[in-house]
Design a protein around this nucleic acid. Structure first.
Lengths: 256, 256
DNA sequence: AAGTGGTCTAGACCACTCA
DNA sequence: GAGTGGTCTAGACCACTTT
């Protein structure tokens, strides 16, 4: 960070769009550096980052530049800043994060916590669509499929299939039990933090199997939620298809 | 803005949460002032705001403080900033805004423009739920209901009912025709700009009437989207319930 | 009292747009 | 070349948390 605004500064893959070459603001370079160190596990979830002053000194930039970089990372939910305390790596079990990635609400808007029951875990070679979505090429190994239901008050309301790249989660298929919140497991046991997800929703008719699990008549309307979740580094690490009965629940979306 | 950080500065209703009293940052006060002037129509959609220098001078704060206020407003999609050109009031017909409030996509992710056909416009006194959602009290007058379908390639894919507070949109019920994009009409003819919306989604079975319009069998699964849209000032100005067949479409949601 | 992030200022310079 | 927003710096002070 000695020569300012050097024209050849690499435009790393950071999700920025329509970036012109030849110029990359210092604070974005700083953001990329800190994000990379974060993705590499230098600071674990919940840990405190060095203070702005320290980071500024070690990166040889002004405190204001570090501040702008950290503010950008906080806007991406990678870190949390607390006045008087410090800057901390976001935790997947934080309530704010938890409900950010789980958009189903009670009809009165209340938060709900469905309990999960695993139906089965299998390891296999990916189908074509699975390989494409998870970015797996021929030699990258197999995938783990998890089938589970999620229940509210003993009533099954969701049946879902998760597809994970096995290389990322070694031994996951042999665990005795899986927690309710898989993202906490991903973060704590495999160093994979989910930063964002992209969802597509449809209304579908229940097939015979799902209908039986959800205690519905075949053909009943279900909300199908298809999710691809991405790590901090921006790689797809989970493909999840959920079928939900929405007579007592609804999916909340804020447009702003 | 003469006495800095005066403790008693009013904490206006700006959507900020858990605000402690007795202190309100200058840049938030500036943001509120400019947002209020914007909501009052001082600058129309597409118009250019005064430059940062001018605003800073007229408000007797530093340029950096104005910048932070404008950056916050840009993050709320109220304004758009373009380097070298200026700061402009967001337009509802801007492509970015248009698809921000319309989340249905083709199955390949493509943007899609359904054509609307109005089935009927009526003026009435609000039902209890309509009055509650739109914040209409007894003497505030009636509501306008618009029923319409939206079609892709001649095939109806959405049937929806919109409920509007009549006081906000005088004469809307007597117009010869209504445009495809109502939010442009709201902004240009009634000075009502939509700043944000809150949606709830469910999967439902098609009733006989909707099924006939959408050329489906009764009981077919439909995506029900219930939206409340809010003006810049934060008041609810539209309640919309859409029933969509999603065999060729899906609802896109980005979680980040 | 010490340390953290948050605000505010003032000034210099850069990138971009347009006349 | 003039005017705009964007970046970067340096320093002062404020609010908040912890010791």
């Amino acid at each position: 960070m000695t020569d300012k605004n050097r024209p050849g500064a690499a435009a790393a893959a950071t999700g920025d769009t329509t970036e012109n070459p030849g110029y990359r603001p210092l604070y974005k370079q700083v953001r990329d550096i800190i994000t990379r160190r974060l993705a590499e596990g230098e600071w674990l979830p919940g840990a405190m980052l060095p203070s702005e002053q320290e980071l500024a000194r070690s990166l040889a930039v002004s405190q204001g530049t570090v501040r702008k970089a950290l503010d950008a990372m906080a806007a991406e939910n990678l870190i949390e800043r607390r006045q008087g305390r410090g800057t901390f790596v976001s935790r997947q079990d934080d309530e704010r994060v938890l409900f950010h990635f789980f958009r189903l609400r009670g009809d009165d808007g209340s938060h709900v916590f469905p309990e999960s029951d695993v139906l089965g875990v299998t390891v296999d070679m990916p189908e074509e669509d699975e390989a494409r979505i998870l970015g797996i090429s021929g030699t990258d190994g197999g995938i783990i499929r998890i089938r589970r239901t999620r229940s509210l008050g003993g009533r099954p309301v969701i049946v879902e299939t998760l597809t994970l790249p096995a290389a990322r989660f070694p031994g996951l298929d042999e665990r005795d039990s899986l927690p309710n919140n898989l993202y906490v497991l991903f973060a704590n046991e495999y160093g994979v933090s989910i930063a964002r997800a992209s969802e597509r929703l449809k209304a579908v008719a229940a097939d015979a199997h799902s209908a039986e699990i959800l205690e519905l008549a075949p053909g009943a309307p279900l909300l199908a939620i298809e999710r691809v979740a991405y790590s901090i580094a921006g790689e797809p690490v989970e493909w999840r298809v959920s079928l939900c009965r929405t007579d007592m629940l609804s999916y909340a979306s804020e447009l702003r």
